[in-house]
Design a protein around this nucleic acid. Structure first.
Lengths: 191, 191
DNA sequence: GTGTAATCTTGATGCATATCAAGATTTATG
DNA sequence: CATAAATCTTGATATGCATCAAGATTACAC
């Protein structure tokens, strides 16, 4: 069974591709299945792919020098993830990407994406439009992190993404929000 | 005197535009001069433009409910700024953009940019490539904010952007880094 | 199902950094 | 250059949240 439908539907929300463009695009895609707890990106290795989540959940995280995890992103269906800096500059990754569930992802290589974006205007547009949104989210997150208390950040997230909050372990959410796992537990017990 | 050279040079670092494309692009640009402390974006008004800084420095900041400022971005020459969420969705801005120096900016309207990106493949590519970088920076910043101490964040910034650190008031840098102005002062006095 | 690993909880303690306050210094302006 | 405005400094105090520790659940594998 093909799993391209999801990503093609996603693209169709932004731009229209012709049948031949779709065929070309599909030709650069690679479907990969990963088991829960499996790493898709690891520090030291170049993050070769832009990864689209068809099914499942993946988190990208950074392991600091004292061994603490800091979650960069939590992605579920229809999200892209990669170590962007590694992917764009072909330098060794600094982050891990770990499957939080058994997942199906679609992978596309940097060179293939760039080549196709050169060729297919609509595809370039798709990535641009999607990434502009992602940037807008990233900005919001920065502000939330520096302007709100732990408790506010926690409840804001739970209200905004209730399905995700239920789906991922609490310590992952904690490390995404920049709160200790213990504090999250205390925040929850208050309500 | 024309101030288009800067932005055209910037674009040329990413893609190549033909003379007619350049002409078309220039036709949607508007040069604006702003005085120090002047607001370019204000909450409640839609941020109509994508703004490119030709000369000067601009910060985007959020004023929270207790009257504290939180700086979203500090931009100097060759940076874009806007309230992205407002600009993309044509909703009232939540942020201020304030000139930190007398500045020259180039403004382009959302509709004009989108229309031209539809038409000119290379221009769409330019924005995509540039924004991918911005997203990668934004991710780094999130991680830095949640994984490092105030002191580390301060010195990291000063080492990474020494010119900017010298150019903007310390309380702006403080609110960008999520540190109180007093703490920044103490951090500096230690060295 | 039983055992082991993963995750979450609860309490005690400490510290980094915010806040408040007030003065010093630097920068702008007529 | 004089005055005001803006910015930065320094000290005293308070507190939110991390950290450490250890036990309680829940999930998972054989």
């Amino acid at each position: 069974m093909s799993r391209y439908k999801e990503i093609l539907d996603h693209i169709a929300r932004y731009v229209e591709l012709s049948d031949s463009e779709i065929a070309e695009f599909i030709s650069i895609l690679k479907i990969t299945r990963v088991k829960k707890r499996q790493f898709i990106i690891q520090p030291g290795f170049v993050s070769e792919y832009r990864n689209y989540i068809v099914k499942g959940a993946v988190r990208v995280f950074y392991l600091d020098d004292v061994g603490k995890e800091h979650t960069v992103s939590i992605g579920v269906e229809d999200w892209f993830f990669t170590d962007f800096s590694s992917y764009l500059n072909r330098t060794p990754a600094k982050y891990f990407a770990e499957a939080l569930e058994d997942s199906v992802i679609i992978q596309m290589k940097y060179d293939d994406v760039e080549e196709l974006c050169e060729k297919i205007h609509a595809l370039s547009q798709y990535f641009r439009l999607f990434i502009e949104k992602a940037l807008s989210y990233a900005n919001e997150r920065v502000i939330t992190n520096i302007s709100k208390t732990s408790e506010e950040r926690y409840w804001d997230y739970v209200n905004k993404y209730p399905q995700i909050a239920n789906r991922v372990p609490q310590y992952v959410l904690a490390s995404y929000l920049g709160i200790s796992a213990e504090s999250i537990s205390r925040i929850r017990s208050k309500s």
